[in-house]
Amino acid sequence: MCGAGQQTLELPPGTDLSRHTVLAGTVLIDPGPNDAGQTLGGAFVRLLDGTGEFTAEVVSSASGAFRFFAAPGDWTIRALHPLGTGETPLSAPGPGLFSVEVTVS
């Protein structure tokens, strides 16, 4: 029972954003300079702490969504996919919902 649940952007019931720090977002594929990115499901999304140390990993949903329950602090979200890798830093100064996009190229 250690696996992460289904990944969606909807928060589970009982999530209290005055207490919880939720990092949520979408994995995109970089299509080139002129197009918007397409969402990318099935990416391995890794949450790394301020020192780059592994904290958690989930798989993005069919629509590219992922979320982590974390703590306030500086994080990096890194995505691995057969099409490439990408990462985005994210700072969460306190509780709340923090959104992020990670583009894989």
Binding site: H20, T55, F68, A71
Partner: peptide, 19 residues
């Protein structure tokens, strides 16, 4: 386990089921 579980700060990683 993760350092926060080890130190006693948390009982289970927040993104996982809470056993």
């Amino acid at each position: 386990r993760s350092p926060d579980e080890f130190s006693g700060k948390i009982l289970a990683p927040a993104h996982l089921l809470q056993e």
